[in-house]
Design a protein around this nucleic acid. Structure first.
Length: 463
RNA sequence: GGCGGCGUAGCCAAGUGGCUAAGGCGGAGGUCUGCAAAACCUCUACUCAGCGGUUCGAAUCCGCUCGCCGCCUCCA
């Protein structure tokens, strides 16, 4: 039984999908007005792992992650750059897809864009107006907070506190300062769509309500996003959907913790971001993933180049096993998974079942790695069992999105092989000076040579 | 001011009522080795921010204090 921390109830609950064997999940994606940063990388990896694990457990998962491709900043930056908002947004959607692929994050089943669902949003707004939950004013349409008493339930706010907060924008035309825009009347120079309330564009929150319900139905299982979206975005999204349909929206709300830059949240608005495309130049996707998954998804992570370097070293422990297995596999016969290696899968699942505890799951994988290394070193006895064990380790690792690319297991290029042979000859002549020189040459090509009782071993030096 | 979260070894980080407080990085010693590296073995928190309380028993529950962070405004 999978247990999930549900933001709505603030407790860990048994996960029971609406339809047995199926999971429908919606995750709020990014607003595409700039390159994605490490915070987005974490968020994407977290939900990627949740999706992979649910799939691993046998659920048929439908995973939707949207693009917000119309908003104030997109319009402004597009105007500044002399391109249309659409062109501008498309550029960053393309970039985002490249970034996610470079991190080994699987593409969503559906990745809808807000601008392609304006009709659905207009229908939803129409439903809210008809039901008395929204009202038009001079080309805008606002959601009437007072018509939805449970507003504030998700974020744990009460309506009075929101007023007292005094940070709510003052707009005389709103019936209540806490009301929020569903539809914004067009201003000169802005892209707009026709609607029953005049030309304009959708408010931020309405897009997710409309798209989630279009692809997943009025009620679905999981809704995710960064914890900074709990209020107001998810609160509003929920209110809009439920006010119209009268049905419960998402059953479980999952929110990931932030990535801090020093003591401060990494955020586009604070300008303290580090882009994904910058960071993948320095670190492999597996290294970054290990860094992210080492901390439980709800906790804060502080960005640190040093911590990532540590993750790299830890990862090398596992990749070495993969290479050793590849070397053994070439000659050995396959074997069944021996009983000594059978304990790790259940332990791994137990950790992941408990609110996707990747930190603990990784601990299991490292324990597994130690058992495998021990088996390898103890002997020539049963190489097939060692290979079977490593295969099992890889299978479990892939549930976390590790070792998905073949690169981790690719053999050395011919040049390195040649050098290795030359070194073996030199060492046979006891010309260790030459041997060490060749070892350095191989190192420059990115491979580490180690002499073991069974002969030299090659491992790629990680990023 | 309101709401929420965090504080565990040198560093990172699980664990949230009861066997020896996971795992990673770093460090120390040993075996192995031409050297190196890796691997393996052993060691590295009598203690969980502090102080009280509940309990047969608490890192885990409750209260207070201190420190840090997030949200309440666009944000993953």
């Amino acid at each position: 039984m999978i247990r999930i921390s549900n933001t709505m109830t603030r407790t860990k609950e048994d996960f029971v999908p609406l339809t047995p064997g199926e999971v429908r999940m919606y995750v709020c994606g990014v607003t595409v007005y700039d390159y994605s940063h490490i915070g987005h990388a974490r968020f994407a990896m977290v939900f990627d792992v949740i999706r992979r694990y649910l799939t691993f457990k046998g659920y048929r998962v439908t995973f939707v992650r949207n693009y917000t491709d119309i908003d104030d900043r997109i319009i402004k930056r597009a105007n500044d750059g002399g391109v249309t908002a659409r062109e501008f947004a498309e550029r960053f959607i393309t970039a985002e897809r490249e970034d996610m692929a470079s991190l080994g994050v699987l593409a969503p089943d559906i990745d809808p864009k807000a601008t392609e669902h304006v009709a659905e949003m207009i229908d939803l707004i129409g439903c809210l107006v008809a039901g008395g939950h929204a009202y038009p004013v001079e080309g805008d349409v606002y959601f009437a907070i007072s018509s939805f008493p449970s507003y504030g339930r998700l974020s744990g706010k009460n309506l009075d506190d929101l007023l007292a907060g005094a940070r709510v924008e003052v707009d005389e035309r709103k019936r209540d300062p806490r009301d929020f825009a569903l539809w914004k009347g067009a201003k000169p120079g802005e892209p707009s769509w026709d609607s029953p309330w005049g030309p304009g564009r959708p408010g931020w929150h309405i897009e997710c309500s409309a798209m989630a319900m279009k692809y997943l139905g009025a009620s679905f299982d999981l809704h995710g996003g960064g914890e900074d979206l709990i209020f107001p975005h998810h609160e509003c999204e929920l209110a809009q959907a439920e006010a119209c349909t009268g049905k419960p929206f998402a059953r479980y709300w999952i929110h990931n913790g932030m990535v801090n830059m020093g003591k401060e949240k990494m955020s586009k608005s604070l300008g303290n971001t580090l882009s994904i495309r910058e960071i993948v130049k320095r670190h492999s996707p597996d290294t970054l993933r290990l860094w992210v998954l080492g901390t439980h998804y709800r906790n804060l992570i502080e960005w640190s180049e040093e911590r990532v370097e540590e993750s790299k070293r830890a990862l090398e422990r596992l990749t070495r096993l993969l290479h050793d297995a590849a070397a053994v596999r070439a000659g050995g016969a396959p074997a069944a998974l021996p009983p000594t290696f059978a304990e790790f899968r259940p332990r791994f699942e137990k950790a992941m079942d408990d609110d996707f505890n990747t930190s603990q799951a990784l601990g299991v994988l490292f324990d597994f790695g130690r058992a495998l290394a021990d088996a390898r070193d103890r002997g020539a006895g049963n190489p097939g069992a060692f290979v079977a064990g490593v295969d099992e380790l890889v299978q479990l690792s892939r549930v976390l999105g590790l070792f998905g690319g073949g690169a981790a297991m690719d053999g050395p290029p011919p040049e390195v092989q040649r050098l290795l042979s030359a070194r073996a000859e030199a060492r046979a002549r006891r010309d260790f000076k030459r041997g060490d020189e060749i070892r350095d040459e191989i190192a420059r090509l990115g491979w580490l040579v180690e002499d073991t009782p069974a002969g030299p071993r090659l491992t790629p030096k990680g990023r």
